[in-house]
Computed example of a mutant assay.
Amino acid sequence: MSDVLLRLVCTAAVTASAVLVPAPAVAATAPSSASAKPVDTRSVPQLLRDLQTLYRQAEQATEAYNGTAEKLKRQRAEVARLDRQLVRARRALAGSRSAVGRLARQQYQGSTELSPYVRLLLSPDPEHALDQSQVIEQLARERAESVARLTGAERRADTLARTARRALAEQIALTGRQKRQRDDVQRRLKDVEALLASLSAGRRAELAELERDGVAAAQKRFLASGALSDTRPPTERGDRAVRYAVDQIGKPYQWGGAGPRSYDCSGLTSQAWVHAGRAIPRTSQEQWARLPHVPLRQLRPGDLVIYFPEATHVALYLGDGMVVQAPRPGTRIKVSPIAANPVLGAVRPDPGGRPLRSYAPPPLPHGASQGSDTGYSAAAPAGGA
């Protein structure tokens, strides 16, 4: 699917009065053959809702894929750690077995001689006997310690081997899950392509106009509601996160992308904060679940705005009611109105940071606001708080 087609079509927002209904099967609108294409009788608002429903499903699948990818990364690191421990445990076990073997050989080789204890009893020199008794006691302790080390090394190696096998099995399961989720994303995006391919140029233009009008109306209502207050200055790290995100404007959206050439929505926000010196969760759902929440009236540049009831979309707050975001497949990173999608809430990666005394926002590149604003629509009008 060409970027031109996506830019023409996928720039849409649901109007305030629209009520979403489940999307009909895309197959019903796809061409039945190369020579015959059924006429799609859906209204333009219904087409927009159906298209955004498909995009939302793709977004949910993408976030699931990203979450599994993060778990798989951690699991691979755990397997590698356990493997290193197991190698050390097996070396220690081999050393303990070697020490016990030497003791066994020494005992066997001295089996025809008098026992050291008998020699101690027959010794004519009391002082020599005392010294010899201490040597025998030390030898006995060393033998007991060698046997104990061998027993402990065997237990540790056995426990590590079982743990490593379980960790590897989990890694294999995560790999399979990731593949299924990747296939799910690709299948859902093909559904979007099929819907887009079924539309005429005129209907695509109507979709684009409807989206633009919807976003403008949603932003106007959102700002008039008083949900936002005067812009607060960011912290030093928040400023660095904002400047990093602004530097990425114009780069393409790519599901699963975390830079430096392309990003998805949470890939952009997580990398912006990594480059600001603060590691945050990779996915929008984890960002919403694990980062401190902040009221919208207290937003400051660098905070993250989370969208949709399932927290499946995220953008970085720029200030003055605008965000930097990676909207959806086929679009590029851009500046958008904060109300382009239904706002769930906001989180702050650096709640203990001190705001800058003076702040000058970074200059925006030419065309920073061009292109589609909406991500993956929920069952409510865009811009709902």
Rank of each mutant, 00 (worst) to 15 (best):
K334F: 01
G302K: 00
V274M: 12
S284F: 00
A216Q: 11
S369N: 06
S266W: 02
R232Y: 10
L364P: 01
S200P: 04
R143H: 08
Q370V: 11
R105F: 06
V343F: 01
S98Y: 10
P361L: 07
R149G: 06
R177W: 04
Q134W: 12
A161Q: 12
R74T: 11
P351V: 06
S229A: 15
V87K: 14
Y108W: 12
D125Y: 08
L86P: 04
S369W: 03
A224H: 11
G367C: 06
G367M: 10
I338T: 07
A258F: 04
R102H: 10
A77P: 05
D40F: 04
N341G: 07
A89K: 02
R180D: 14
R91E: 15
Q85I: 03
P295R: 07
A258S: 14
Q219M: 09
A34H: 09
L51D: 00
R90A: 05
Y65R: 13
L8V: 11
A157C: 08
L223H: 03
A245D: 03
I333N: 01
V9K: 03
A326C: 06
R81V: 07
A227T: 09
D373P: 01
E113M: 06
S266M: 05
V9E: 05
E78I: 10
Y253L: 05
L316N: 00
R243W: 06
A157Y: 04
A311P: 02
P233I: 01
L299K: 01
R182V: 02
R203Q: 14
A340V: 00
R88T: 11
V314F: 03
E70K: 08
R354V: 13
L189E: 15
L120Y: 04
R42L: 13
A34S: 11
A92N: 12
G67R: 05
P45S: 05
Y55H: 11
T235E: 05
A104K: 13
P301H: 02
R177E: 15
P351W: 06
D184C: 10
D3Q: 12
Q171A: 15
T163K: 12
R240H: 07
A58Y: 03
I280E: 00
V147P: 02
A34V: 13
Q287S: 05
Q181P: 09
E113Q: 13
G202R: 10
L139C: 06
E142F: 09
D125N: 14
R76I: 08
L160R: 01
G238D: 02
R74K: 13
E310F: 03
V26C: 06
E310K: 10
S98L: 11
L228P: 00
E78G: 09
K179W: 07
P234H: 04
A144R: 15
T235Y: 04
V323Q: 00
C265M: 07
G176W: 04
A315E: 00
T231V: 12
S146G: 14
E78N: 15
Q132K: 09
K73H: 12
A224G: 09
E145I: 07
S266E: 01
L344T: 05
L120T: 05
P252L: 09
L8G: 10
G67P: 02
L268I: 00
A216L: 09
R221H: 10
Y117L: 13
N66D: 14
P363D: 11
R156Y: 04
A34K: 09
A28T: 13
S369I: 02
A218Y: 02
L196M: 15
R357C: 03
I306R: 01
Q52V: 10
L344N: 07
